[in-house]
Amino acid sequence: MLLSSPHSSRLKYLSLGVLVLQTTSLVLTMRYSRTLKEDGPRYLASSAVVSAELLKILVCTILVFKENSELEDMRLLKEEIVNKPVETMKLAIPAGIYTLQNNLLYVALSNLDAATYQVTYQLKILTTALFSVSMLGKRLGLYQWLSLLFLMGGVTLVQWPTESEGDTEQLVLSAGSQFVGLMAVLMACVSSGFAGVYFEKILKETKQSVWVRNIQLGLFGLVFGSVGMIVYDGKRVRELGMFQGYTTVTCTVVALQALGGLVVAVVIKYADNILKGFATSLSIIVSTLVSYFLLEDFNPTGVFFLGAVLVIAATFLYSNKRKPASGSAIKV
């Protein structure tokens, strides 16, 4: 039964506002941090991913301890993580994919403006829907399939090449950079869809707290992220340390990425999928405005705006006809 008290209504819209703020802030600060010209070395994306996993584990552990007594928590964590190795190992797959996805997002925002990234990344709705149909046996209605067509059309328009004037060599480099960013976003959408549905399937098969599951997920993510950091940035880490180039902006990016799942959890608890879709749409609009007026790395066109409108409409249409399933996957 849905609560309709004034207190519940305030929590609903407060959580909605926080989600818009968190989503927009993460994209913009990540983009800003990857394009900011600095005198010293730039922070390592692989290091930021590892730091975010550490913070997630810490926050989830605090939440678990808040729900139960300290002794019960120690027994619970030992029982679920140590004494059930098979169940724990199931989370290695989504953890590895999420780690890859998080690194891809840094690559994407190093090569795409925030507005284009935000709109294109909504393709994860399509990949999630397809994996839900194939892995969970879900059925989509006519309006949902129609919304997915709108989504693909909108993203295609956003990525539509525009005629530009200027130095030919610079244009080629820009096109190459944008292609790298686009490939990174597309791979992130596929990985997000598969990992999210896989994690949802695990949550539905067990009755354990979502925070415990996210601790397990975070532990694997920490291992995979550390291995990736050593393999790709090991030399730089040995020379200047893991936290080289960290600034206040970098720490903000790490905190926003780590705490994003908590915000989503609150929205799912107090709001619904329609309002979550509304938050996504607002985030796209705000990111576009800030990217144009403040970051000055985005020149909007009529084709882009048409594509963005289609994506926003697709988000509403898909959410409006979809009833939220119990035990929905929450990635923290």
Results as ranks from 00 to 15, higher is better:
Met1Gln: 15
Met1Tyr: 15
Leu3His: 11
Ser5Asn: 12
Ser8Asp: 05
Leu16Gly: 03
Leu16Gln: 06
Leu16Tyr: 02
Leu21Gly: 03
Thr24Met: 04
Leu26Gln: 05
Val27Glu: 02
Leu28Ser: 00
Leu28Tyr: 00
Thr29Tyr: 06
Gly40Phe: 02
Pro41Thr: 08
Leu44Tyr: 06
Ala45His: 06
Ser46Thr: 12
Ser46Met: 08
Ala52Pro: 13
Lys56Tyr: 09
Lys56Glu: 07
Ile57Ala: 03
Ile57Ser: 11
Val64Glu: 00
Lys66Asn: 14
Glu70Arg: 03
Leu71Glu: 11
Leu76Val: 00
Lys78Cys: 10
Glu79Gly: 02
Pro85Lys: 02
Val86Lys: 14
Lys90Thr: 09
Ile93Phe: 11
Ile93Asn: 10
Tyr98Leu: 14
Leu104Arg: 00
Val107Phe: 10
Ala108Gly: 01
Leu109Thr: 08
Asp113Trp: 02
Thr116Ser: 11
Gln118Phe: 07
Tyr121Trp: 10
Met135Gly: 02
Gly141Asn: 14
Leu142His: 14
Tyr143Asp: 12
Trp145Asp: 11
Leu149Ala: 10
Leu149His: 13
Val158Pro: 04
Gln159Cys: 10
Trp160Ser: 14
Leu171Val: 15
Gly176Gln: 14
Gln178Asn: 13
Ala184Met: 06
Ser192His: 07
Ser192Gly: 12
Ala195Lys: 05
Ile202Val: 08
Lys204Ile: 04
Thr206Phe: 05
Ser209Arg: 02
Trp211Leu: 13
Ile215Glu: 00
Gly218Met: 12
Ser226Thr: 12
Gly228Thr: 10
Asp233Leu: 12
Asp233Cys: 09
Val237Arg: 01
Thr247Trp: 09
Thr247Lys: 08
Thr250Met: 07
Thr250Arg: 13
Leu256Ser: 06
Leu259Gly: 08
Val267Leu: 04
Asp272Ser: 07
Asn273Lys: 09
Asn273Ser: 15
Asn273Asp: 09
Ile274Ala: 08
Ile274Gln: 08
Gly277Gln: 03
Phe278Pro: 07
Ile284Gly: 00
Ser287Thr: 15
Ser287Ile: 13
Val303Gly: 13
Gly307His: 01
Ala308Ile: 13
Ala313Pro: 11
Ala314Glu: 03
Thr315Phe: 12
Thr315Asp: 10
Ser319Phe: 10
Gly327Glu: 05
Ile330Leu: 08
Ile330Trp: 01
Lys331Ser: 15
Val332His: 07
Val332Arg: 05
